[in-house]
Structures are given as C-alpha cells and as structure tokens.
C-alpha cells in the first residue's frame, strides 16, 4: 500500500517538541505521533492534544538525532496508513516488502539494530515488526557459521549443552555417555 497524501506543516497547536539524546529538538505533528504508542500515551496523559495546555519538550534519552530523523521519515511515509495490525504469521519462508521500505531499510546491520531499539522504545509496531522481518530475511539461506557472524554470537563449545558444565578433555564417561566427547574430536579408527 502506498499513500502519497500531502504532508501538513506542524503548527504550534498540532505538534509537540521531542528532544533527542544529543539535544536536538524536533517538531512533531500530533497526527504522526499516533503511530507511536509511547508518544500517544504520553500525549494523552499530559493532555497535549488540547490547545490550552502548555506543552513541554519531551526528552527521548534513548534516541539520537540521526535515529529520530530516520523515524520521522518513517512516520511521514505512513501518515495515512491504517492502524497496524499484527498478524501471527511466523516462520514464513518469505516476506515481501514495498520498494520504499526496502530502500528505507537498506542500511548497515548495526544501524538496523539501533533503529529496532528506537522503534521498540517508541513502540511503533509497524516499524518494529518490519525491521524484525527484514533482519530475519537477511539471515535466510545462511549457514550457522554465517548467522553466527552476522548476529555476533560467540561460540560456547567449552560448556556441555545439557549440563552447562565445562567439558574437560580428559573427562571420564558418565551414565549417558555425553561427557565422552572431547573438544578436539577425531573420528574413531575404522
């Protein structure tokens, strides 16, 4: 779905100011904040949707200005989209994304990680779910070693998987035979 409605410029009556962790202020249209459950709840609690209420800047200590810029771009694009409804499609062999989304999230893995954290903090379900799916699709078709590299997971071969106890190379056999495995296995003589 694509919505190319013209965007309206924020006015003091219909916007709030958010402040990123590096001190930069962003004027945010109240319409855009509806996509963020965190901001929407905050606006509702402080009644910032009323014109007679003084609106203090909202500090977003976990989000940098670069991330905020990126998020505003997302919010602007999805301004007129219907409310996101999470479906329960899990373990799909393929997800499809609209071209704009693919270009928008064509960013390095580390930036994707930061953006996912920001989407989680601001509770923007559509962005959150889309990043999760994009990240999952980047892993599709990879071997365990490649997944390990992409996700920066360290191996823990020195611990027994089922007991958590470090395996000694000279460990004696146990009842289930699991401790007979050495760390540097060589095939048995044929």
């Amino acid at each position: 779905m694509s919505c190319e409605e013209p965007t309206t410029s924020p006015t003091p009556e219909n916007n709030i100011t958010v402040v990123s962790s590096d001190g930069k202020e962003f004027l945010l249209d109240l319409k855009l904040t509806e996509q963020s459950e965190t901001l929407a709840r905050l606006i509702s609690n402080f009644e910032y949707d009323r014109t007679d209420v003084k609106k203090d800047p909202v500090p977003l200590g976990n989000i940098t200005s670069a991330q905020m810029q990126k998020i505003i771009e997302w919010l602007q694009h999805h301004r007129y989209y219907p409310k996101w409804e999470q479906n329960d499609i899990h373990y799909s062999t393929s997800f499809t994304f609209e071209t704009w989304v693919e270009e928008y999230l064509n960013i390095p893995n580390n930036e994707m990680f930061e953006l996912l954290n920001a989407a989680n903090y601001l509770n923007i379900p559509r962005l959150f779910s889309t990043i999760c799916r994009i990240m999952a699709s980047r892993i599709t078709g990879k071997s365990a070693e490649q997944i390990r590299t992409v996700l920066n997971i360290k191996t823990d071969v020195k611990n027994d998987v089922y007991t958590g106890i470090p395996i000694q190379e000279d460990s004696s056999s146990s009842e289930d035979g699991m401790s007979e495995i050495s760390l540097s296995p060589s095939p048995p003589p044929i």
Binding site: S92, S137, A144, I147, R148, D156
Partner: peptide, 14 residues
C-alpha cells in the same frame, strides 16, 4: 520472523 531452517541453524550456534 525467521524461517524454520534459519531458526534451527541458529539453535545450533550456542
């Protein structure tokens, strides 16, 4: 969100 094969491969890592 991962497909099954990726998830099983993931489970083998650590």
């Amino acid at each position: 969100s991962m497909e099954e094969l990726s998830l099983i491969m993931f489970s083998l890592i650590s």
